[in-house]
């Protein structure tokens, strides 16, 4: 790279242009283009890092101003750490049924290309959960009970919820606002083979008006419609409420033009076999996060702020707030006014 090119790259105009592009990308870069937002936003910040490197190579003032230099280097480091965090991180979500174990194959996530997938080693069973609501359906505390493998066959009980996640294998599982009901059904085909499973209904009470879902009978390709009939009010909008399963809910199955209703323990003939409604369970939604570099990022940003504060304090020491220069000999024997002339280059 030629000398003049490095000087041009180190220009403050390049800095301002990159900042302008970063603003534009932050505001308009997520418009569904061909490239993911993370890649697009990385471009101006990558350019800013190059701009800083060029400035460090060519600008004596920047190199000699420890506070300013340290702040910029810390910011560049933070940029690289953030990029590394996004490349190795995971942000996902899952619904786990009461009484069943966590199944990593059901996780939906944005996964960094260098993420070390370790979710297969995560084991826990969803217990019950409690959620309180204030009048007006204002959600308050969530307490979700989980059972983790303990010593031998015993399991270890933990409670998580809101800002207290389950931390396991570097992953953090946070309870989300998503939770709902899941009828447990067993389909027995004509050969006597039984298939059990739960049908997750949409989040409740958010989707109280559409507690239904499509479900494909095992061994067939025919989807049928399943919904939960709630004959009584489950909650009163203007009263405090505690999340609970409805006591007299009935499972409605609509297949082959017929509508049939079941209570827990009842069966209906269906597609050459029969379907039994075992019981109503609940499911809890979790967001999953994996960000191993967060402690390093926090440390870096703290260092950046300390350097910035040092730089600003130095500026304020050099000249008082009433506009008078504070003459004090510097290490090089220059007075403060000379030092001031060299400031603000970046």
């Amino acid at each position: 790279m030629s000398h003049s090119l490095v000087h041009r790259l180190a220009s403050l105009r390049v800095t301002l242009a990159c900042i302008g592009v970063a603003v534009a990308v932050a505001l308009f870069g997520d418009g569904g283009g061909a490239w993911p937002f993370g890649v697009i936003i990385a471009l101006p910040f990558g350019a800013l890092c190059l701009n800083l490197l060029a400035a460090m190579a060519t600008n004596v003032t920047l190199r000699s101003n420890a506070g300013l230099l340290g702040f910029h280097v810390a910011l560049a480091t933070l940029t690289l750490l953030t990029a590394a965090d996004r490349l190795t991180g995971l942000a996902g979500h899952i619904e786990v049924t009461e009484g069943l174990g966590f199944d990593p194959s059901l996780v939906e996530a944005d996964i960094g290309p260098f993420h070390p997938w370790k979710l297969d080693s995560v084991r826990f069973v969803q217990g019950g959960f409690e959620i309180n609501y204030d009048p007006g359906m204002k959600r308050r505390e969530t307490v979700s009970t989980l059972y983790l493998p303990g010593d031998g066959r015993a399991s270890h009980r933990v409670e998580v919820g809101d800002d207290s996640p389950l931390v396991i294998g570097g992953y953090r599982f946070y309870t989300s606002f998503n939770k709902g009901f899941a009828p447990l059904v067993t389909f027995t085909d004509g050969a006597g083979r039984a298939y059990s499973g739960t049908i997750h209904l949409p989040s409740y009470p958010l989707n109280y008006f559409k507690q239904g879902n499509d479900w494909t009978i095992p061994g067939t390709s025919k989807p049928i419609k399943v919904w939960l009939h709630l004959p009584d009010e489950v909650y009163e909008e203007e009263e405090a409420w505690h999340f609970r399963k409805p006591e007299n809910a009935r499972l409605v199955v609509i297949a082959e033009g017929a509508r049939q209703e079941m209570r827990p323990g009842e069966s209906i003939p269906l597609a050459g076999g029969h379907l039994r409604y075992e019981e109503l369970r609940s499911w809890m939604g979790y967001t999953i996060a994996y960000n191993p570099l967060v402690p390093w990022m926090l440390a870096t940003v703290v260092v950046a702020i300390l350097f910035l504060a040092w730089h600003v304090a130095g500026k304020f020491r050099a000249r008082s707030w009433d506009g008078r220069a504070r003459a004090r000999p510097s290490r090089r024997g220059e007075d403060a006014a000379v030092g001031r002339k060299r400031a603000y280059v970046r």
């Binding site: 942000a91 800002d163 960000n291 967060v294 926090l298 702020i305």
Partner: peptide, 25 residues
Amino acid sequence: LIAFIFETLMLVAGAIWAQDAWGRY
């Protein structure tokens, strides 16, 4: 300049809060 320091601190404190509350900074 002072505002810049405090805005940076505000963003950091907000990120810590977001990490605690919603699992993402």
